[in-house]
Computed example of a mutant assay.
Amino acid sequence: MNTKKIFNEKKFVKRFMEKIEKAINNEEFDKAEVSIKRALKNAAYDMPSKSLLYSYLGRINFQKGKFDTSKRFLNSALRLNSQNEDANFYLSNLYMSEQDVHKALSYIEKNLSISPGKFSYLIQRAWCLILLDRYEEAGNIYHKLQSFRGIDPQGFIDLGMAYILKGDFREAKRIIFNALSNFPENIFVESAFYEMREIEENLYYYRKELFFKKLRLIRFRQKIYSAALRKTVEGMTLRGYFQFEIEKASDFIVALSSKRLDVSKAEGLAAAVEYFISDFIGESESIKKVIVNYYNTTLYQLKKNIDLIRSEAPVELEELNNQLMSYYELNIDYFFDNTDPEGDDE
């Protein structure tokens, strides 16, 4: 056996991986992707190295927002090497971005079995536990990380935003205040603080102006439609929709109630209404799984309600789209120049 040749090959692979890491970190995604695909096509690698290259392709596509492609590469990486922590980590992030908490946790637990106590995995686990209402367990992890100074600015922000998704502004602010005391000069932490405060103020205002004022207009199946109205207003506010979009979603629910559309569950109705808003702005596919998981419904129920609305309330749906189009045309400068939208004055 030529040990010198093996050593040189390992040295080459290590340098190549470092080169790919550097390109990805510098956001030179196309350059990295071309190099990886050329290497996979023209060179023979051992299974762990080949697995790592596939996980790099998964990471690149994750950062490009091509989530389905990313999943295919990451799953291929795990088929080659089930101990690939990079692939587990980014699959966790993918499912976290879709709020599919149970799937995310399964990959996080795999990584923690390989590298127990690794800070980045513990932050992911705490995020998931918050969304599962397992606050005590999440708090224990948080305090452990704090004691070891194991949370970076982004970790603080992620955990704070997890509480925001649960509507728990008190805990979110407690975490972000800790972040500000640890990283007083960090602009991302400061920006997150102002974002959280804005979301809290918006939620209070929208509940008063869009939920309570429209509640009295619901006459048909009041329990279902009222719950759908509340869930839609809260969910779209927490995900940062514009005021006009939330207002039109609320009006649409009232219109469907007046139409006496026979829906069976509030969650399915709320998910369908948010889907139509996101579909109009071209984000329905990227947010579909988030909607399904947030409203605790299924893709089947979502499709069923979408089809029902399209067939039974086409006039109301067209009116919704026309109103959205008018708003975007009126505020076109905002979307390109970031001036204040005319319909969002409070």
Score class of each variant (00 low, 15 high):
Y205T: 12
A179R: 04
I253V: 01
Y205W: 04
S226V: 03
R207C: 09
I253W: 08
N182S: 15
I141D: 05
F211L: 10
E136V: 05
Y204Q: 08
A228D: 09
E201H: 08
F242W: 15
E245D: 10
T237R: 12
N186Y: 02
F188N: 14
L210D: 04
E136M: 05
M196Y: 12
L203V: 13
E245L: 04
N178Q: 06
R219W: 11
I175H: 09
R216T: 10
L180H: 02
E137R: 05
K214G: 09
L210G: 03
F212C: 07
Y206V: 15
I253F: 02
L238P: 00
R149V: 11
G235Y: 06
S181T: 11
L238C: 03
E201A: 11
R197Y: 09
F177S: 10
A138F: 10
F156Q: 09
A192V: 00
N140Y: 12
L159H: 06
R219V: 06
L203I: 13
E185K: 13
P184N: 02
S147R: 14
Q243V: 10
L159C: 09
E201F: 14
V233T: 03
Y135D: 14
R221N: 02
E209N: 03
L217A: 02
R197C: 05
N178D: 15
E190L: 05
Q154K: 12
A179G: 15
K231N: 11
R221M: 13
Y206D: 15
E185I: 06
R174D: 14
Y194M: 07
R239D: 00
F183H: 05
K223Q: 11
E198I: 04
